[in-house]
Design a protein around this nucleic acid. Sequence first.
DNA 1: GCAAAAGTGTTTGGGATACACCCATGC
DNA 2: GCATGGGTGTATCCCAAACACTTTTGC
Lengths: 225, 225
Amino acid sequence: MKYATPYIPPTLTVDAVIFQLNGTELEVLLTQRSEDPFKGEWALPGGYNATGSTTLEALASVVKRKVGVDIDAQLAYIEQLYTFDTVARDPRGHCVSVTYMGCGRAIELGSGSQHAAFFPVDKLPNLAYDHASIIAYARERLSAKLTYTNAVAGLLEPKFTLSQLQTAYEAVMGREIDKRNFRKKFLSLGLIHETPDMWREGAHRPAKLYAFNNTSLEVLSRSFD
Amino acid sequence: MKYATPYIPPTLTVDAVIFQLNGTELEVLLTQRSEDPFKGEWALPGGYNATGSTTLEALASVVKRKVGVDIDAQLAYIEQLYTFDTVARDPRGHCVSVTYMGCGRAIELGSGSQHAAFFPVDKLPNLAYDHASIIAYARERLSAKLTYTNAVAGLLEPKFTLSQLQTAYEAVMGREIDKRNFRKKFLSLGLIHETPDMWREGAHRPAKLYAFNNTSLEVLSRSFD
DNA sequence: GCAAAAGTGTTTGGGATACACCCATGC
DNA sequence: GCATGGGTGTATCCCAAACACTTTTGC
């Protein structure tokens, strides 16, 4: 193919929507921008993707640098979400962003990252760029993923109680679920097994701890509402 | 963010997986490459995305030029599929491709496109680049889409028989479906209505023609197996 | 009349939903 | 003993799946 003018590609960036669970709330990792544009506002961690790096490599590098999180070691799961490409989304010029969505649990931020924090997805600050809509899209995707995969495993500790499992579903889906039906159905999927351990906390009956048979992502034959 | 070396983005390209139905077969649109690399091999229609164009604008332009198809006018439906970015996927250098999937019916190719044709998805020629895996991914996505949206409308004529509708599902899903159960379930979704017209063809009973109430993409409350 | 596709109902099993009480513990 | 969350069973309804014959047409 021939061009009358030299070919100039748009800037390519990568951004990550990283979720974790904190009690009953789903949280997302943000960084505060130190430079214009949007200086001082919160944004998804992300940065440039230069030629020679895949988008996931570029993302791993930039997330490590900006918020001190090691995607391979600290996230249970990451997948490509969508590519956002409207010309006006970055005031500096045309910029195409390949976004990823990941999940982890009790994620520790690196020491050099004072300007990074988790925010509850229902109480986000003002966000730079189109990042609010990216987070909304990621949350929908995550909610859908929980219904037809074992992705919830990525949000929980290796051993967890059935109440914690149910709380994870309720936090992501944003609605309450009947306890008896939830347990009956989830156990019937055969994804988890009891462990000999118990969870003891507070003045009430201890809870059995369960674990997933398979922590890698698995698509279910029956979907879960 | 500062870089020791000047920032150079990868090449950005766009590619389209365009499906149509031909009788009982699902077909995909390919073009034969006129230049190296992969000269003479078949590939998805696609090309460069220069700065200033969104991926969908770039795609519309390149698809019109290469195969003479007008995405807005001739496709019922198009959506972003995935962004493929492995460094080695193009022998000329690092190239990131944003891919789209679309559906249409009885798509006419432009006159200037001798080197374009539809192929049955189950009988593809050797394909350039990683395009075989892109098509496989698109087909899975389309199959999933048919179960929870009215996307099948994009593969059919505005008026269609229930047998044609069932055949569309069977072609995309790649399996047979019981006729009585299919009709009962699909009609219960309330997506289509009878028209006064009949389909007459061959030495057998004529069939009622139906039409969708809503041809724009709609997510179903109950999913369809 | 015969070939070919259209059209039509019933039965059965399993999962979804709705719903309320006892259990084990710490204090 | 009491407050707190853990843990359990049943009845109903709807949907999914399996399954075979009659109807209408062109020739």
